[in-house]
């Protein structure tokens, strides 16, 4: 059963923020992505689901333009990532690792990101951004002394510092305790209320289905489900069997 067609062809008249067409990515002899189509419209909350090695992170990296697809094409805000350099201003990314500089303080990390995003932020604005993620007390502490939860909060503050239109979150719940997971849920809720477009790659299927409108499930680099989260559970079990058969071939 091909579930991909359920959502890919939908046309709501909203602006297309991300579009991947027939995207395949090969690392050495392994295909991380195989002919993936994905179209995300403005204001959508999309969860990318799938087990380890299914291609979620690779797909996010291809969408951001950090990795080039082996085949296929990607458009970010209507232009290929390579040529949409200026449009990166509208893109916020939470990578699976924090990508923070351990020797710098939280405030210095945010200040660096602000300059790199072309913002003219003052320290009090950055402290406010830190307060928003509950880190105002740790503003002058070096990041290498932070717990993984604090790093995740700081990375989220950095990813949304420039008020991006599209936010890609790769494993936002990774290495977090229950409190941290609840905090990320609340943060995602805020982004949703602010009308941001979100793509969340996660193992936390229950949370993703509760938070998002649409689920895209990957198995072995292929999309096995693309549709509303409400019909995900029933649809994906049958699709998994067909992918297993294909993988054996």
């Amino acid at each position: 059963m091909n579930h991909r067609a359920q959502a890919a062809g939908s046309d709501t008249g909203r602006r297309v923020v991300v579009e991947a067409r027939e995207v395949s990515k090969r690392y050495a002899r392994n295909w991380a992505l195989k002919a993936v189509d994905l179209r995300v419209e403005g204001g959508e909350l999309v969860s990318l689901l799938g087990p380890n090695g299914s291609g979620k992170s690779t797909l996010l990296r291809v969408l951001t333009g950090v990795t080039r697809p082996t085949y296929g094409s990607v458009e970010l805000f209507g232009a290929p990532p390579k040529t949409s350099n200026g449009k990166r201003q509208h893109l916020g990314v939470l990578p699976p690792q924090s990508y923070l500089y351990g020797e710098l303080t939280a405030l210095e990390n945010l200040n660096f990101a602000a300059v790199m995003y072309g913002l003219k932020s003052h320290d009090d604005e950055l402290v406010e951004a830190l307060a928003h993620v509950g880190l105002e007390q740790a503003a002058d502490r070096q990041v290498r002394t932070f717990s993984s939860g604090m790093r995740k909060r700081l990375a989220l503050a950095r990813a949304t510092l420039h008020d991006p239109e599209l936010v890609l979150l790769d494993e936002p719940y990774g290495a977090l305790d229950v409190e941290g997971i609840g905090w990320v849920d609340a943060f995602v809720g805020e982004l949703r209320e602010a009308g941001k477009t979100l793509v969340i790659a996660t193992h936390e299927i229950g949370r993703a289905l509760a938070l998002c409108d649409r689920a895209v499930s990957l198995r072995g680099g292929r999309v096995v489900y693309d549709g509303p989260t409400s019909s995900y559970e029933g649809a994906v079990s049958g699709a998994t069997d067909s992918v297993r058969m294909e993988a054996k071939r």
Binding site: R61, T64, G65, V66, N85, G86, K87, R88, Q89, L91, V93, P95, Q97, S98, Y99, L100, Y101, G102, A113, M116, Y117, G118
Partner: peptide, 12 residues
């Protein structure tokens, strides 16, 4: 720190 990827993600 994975910063190389972060540097590539920044505009400019």
């Amino acid at each position: 720190s994975g910063g190389m990827e972060a540097l590539r993600l920044y505009p400019g």
